[in-house]
Design a protein around this nucleic acid. Structure first.
Lengths: 205, 205
DNA sequence: TAATTTACTAAACAGTGTTCAGTAACTTTG
DNA sequence: CAAAGTTACTGAACACTGTTTAGTAAATTA
């Protein structure tokens, strides 16, 4: 009897539909307007139904976060082709900036909001985050191996690089860049300059 | 007749009481639990009363943000005594880390949340933010003047420094530092190392 | 003292995440 | 094929949220 198999498949399909709807609402309306009722309405089910497939809202957001990481991986994959690791490192930075501008809602779910992280119990790994970070770390390691940068620890310097970019993106998105009293275009230039300066700073001369 | 003067004074006192109560609730319970009803209850008035003194919740949060900047200025002022601007720069970084750890709620109101920034109309200056940034920028300018660092623009490098620290603080507070799979203490060490590395990176050798 | 202004409140509106009793449809059993 | 059991789903409820507004009591002015 393939009934249990079909039921299981239907269960998974329903889960996927919820995640798809949640992703749409989230990308279109943002975090604040993403409510269980809103998601339920989009798939034409009652709000309670979502709780038959997810423990709580955080679990739904965690699933949407995964979608975001999959999107980023697709933009990251082609960068593997860049043979010079220092050039690849810069390309990762440019991709990171672009992603944060084109998908601001996904960006905050992936790197800012606490909600999706709350489903991860202590000491349990954050697979999607680690996978993305590994790509950065490997690139930094290659730079060290080829003596292109003066870093000791690839892990540490990968993290520093991430922190620098993340800080720039955050100050920009949260309007704290207002202290600079510049136009939006000048701010974009500032970010570009910042990435160039960062590469210059860590480069071996 | 001193009645209008007294009335004005009472109006200001009431505003102050609201801000004080809001600051307490905010520091104790955090952003999520800071509601108009919560603030009103603490000063034993109805929620509606707050709207006689503030346009909306954002305006209350903006006032609390100012309190946060005043707290930070008090920690910043003594650093003026440090004559060596590069040492002062590092001290600012250490103070910034400490502040973010000791007052996480104020930190997010000052540097992360959108709500308090929404009271600032476009092209209007963000005084408190600019004042704090000026202290950092002046210190970087002194470093340039004394040829201690290899920066061209003090404004740009002050911003880069801020972005780097802010990025570290954010990745830490938002649990994204989990990619490092380290203990809390190891993470604190990482932040300290990061600041040292940053100073080393921008220093003239 | 009467009229006016001021300060405040209670209630309402539309929204939130989550739980749970009840029900209708589907599946299994006899 | 009918009865029993299981599954999937819903509607309503609970305790919250920011904000608006009509109504009221007190303070001030005339």
């Amino acid at each position: 009897m393939g009934i249990i198999e079909r039921k299981e498949r239907e269960k998974q399909e329903m889960r996927d539909r919820i995640v798809e709807a949640a992703t749409e609402v989230f990308a279109e309306e943002g975090y604040e307007k993403t409510s269980i009722r809103n998601i339920a309405e989009r798939i034409e089910y009652s709000p309670g139904t979502i709780y038959l497939y997810f423990k709580d809202k955080n679990e739904v957001l965690f699933a949407v976060q995964k979608v975001g990481f999959d999107m980023m991986r697709e933009e990251m994959a082609p960068l593997q082709q860049i043979k010079n690791p220092l050039k690849r490192l810069k390309a990762i930075g440019e991709m990171y900036f672009r992603f944060s501008m084109e998908h601001p809602q996904h960006y905050s779910l992936m790197f800012v909001l606490m909600a999706p992280m709350e489903v991860l119990e202590e000491h349990k790994p954050w697979h999607k985050g680690q996978e993305a970070f590994a790509f950065l770390e490997n690139t930094v390691q290659e730079c060290i191996d080829k003596k292109l940068i003066h870093a000791k620890s690839a892990k540490d310097y990968a993290f520093y690089s991430w922190a620098f970019l993340h800080g720039l993106v955050m100050l920009n998105n949260s309007c704290r860049v207002r202290v600079m009293e510049q136009t939006d275009e000048e701010n974009r230039d500032l970010m570009e300059r910042a990435l160039n300066e960062w590469i210059k700073m860590i480069k071996n001369h």
